[in-house]
Design a protein around this nucleic acid. Structure first.
Lengths: 192, 192
DNA sequence: ATTGACAAACTAATAGTATTAGTTTACGAT
DNA sequence: ATCGTAAACTAATACTATTAGTTTGTCAAT
């Protein structure tokens, strides 16, 4: 009873599907093994550990998010690009909530937490900021500010927060992004 | 071998200490029991479950955070209050990182996540916003925006993010809060 | 003082988690 | 045809949390 065509990419794909279907909380090596008609131990021929597996699935999800961000801003500049980026980010977080969890990095794995910040992931923001004529220093600061805002909003919504108040969340977000846009323009003027 | 003076508050206190000392990831009912010189099962005379225990410890931590926020803004208004609030929030998240985790709610507990939003917790922000003369609607929006920004920053720092860039994080935060301040003033003028 | 009840500790067991060691076996290359 | 390797297996370990059932200490009432 050997040879079932499993390999790392098949396992990762199945893991991603399982997580999207049933949620991160119900995911386990045992569940994954069952779906692949294999015993749990066999998975270890293809992945190092649960944590590593989740890391890698998360990285792939991050790549998808980045791709969507890039698509959203392609051909746009200035405020148009900014709003488009912000919207794409938020949409991804809502539509793929389990994957977004994985990207942000608060899985179950022992309370660890990390936000992925590879070069490519920061690219979309960097491109959007280019349009505002910031100094290098200012650009770095605004990278953080923008990311902070987007993450903060995504996490809140994700957690079911922001629901108590009787005003539209889309509008709240729009105002937040507008606030960033105004701030960016101001910063751009300042550093000329 | 009965009667060791345990009760719910003692257990919760010990749990909080253990978490602050060793981190959420190393916390377990077994560890907690060992610290209290008791068998694991005995804890269940005082707490319902691990999840409930963490919830309650988290709620207590949230109360402490709120108290610090209130202290920070007491006697202040306008931008001064805003900056003071933002600084207090960030300081708490840095100084009590494990407790902050618990507040935000990304413990291990099954990937659940919730941001606590009881009335009292929102009070400090509400008070600060009072100074900007916003309409009720605007105030609700800005409550979200402010919270989003503070959470986003805290989470990032927490996750070890923001470290790649060669500019000061304090300054990034200051700029973010300044951006909020400017936006708030603009919003205040707009709704008069 | 004795008794009796309650609460708090215990022991023991269950079911779930990830992971490792060691064994078998199928397939592909020689 | 055979032989080695990689992929599956079985079995075991060491953790989780949690529940059921049992013992026992303490406090209150008689």
């Amino acid at each position: 009873m050997a040879r079932k065509g499993l390999d790392k990419s098949v396992v990762m794909k199945a893991a991603a599907e399982l997580i999207e279907e049933q949620g991160l909380s119900r995911f386990s090596m045992g569940e994954l093994a069952r779906r692949l008609h294999v015993k749990t131990a066999s998975l270890y021929n293809h992945v190092d550990s649960l944590d590593r597996l989740l890391d890698e699935v998360g990285l792939e999800a991050a790549a998808r998010l980045t791709a969507e961000e890039n698509a959203a801003i392609s051909g746009k500049t200035g405020d148009e690009a900014l709003f488009s980026l912000a919207e794409a980010y938020r949409r991804f977080a809502r539509e793929h909530d389990q994957m977004y969890r994985l990207i942000i990095g608060f899985s179950r794995r022992s309370g660890e937490m990390q936000i992925r910040e590879a070069r490519e992931i920061l690219e979309p923001i960097r491109k959007v900021l280019e349009g505002y004529g910031l100094s290098q220093t200012q650009q770095y600061h605004w990278q953080r500010i923008l990311r902070g805002m987007m993450v903060g909003f995504a996490i809140h919504e994700h957690a079911g927060g922001f629901t108590g108040l009787p005003v539209d969340k889309d509008e709240s977000y729009r105002l937040a992004v507008q606030c960033m846009a105004d701030g960016l323009r101001r910063a751009g003027r300042g550093s000329e």
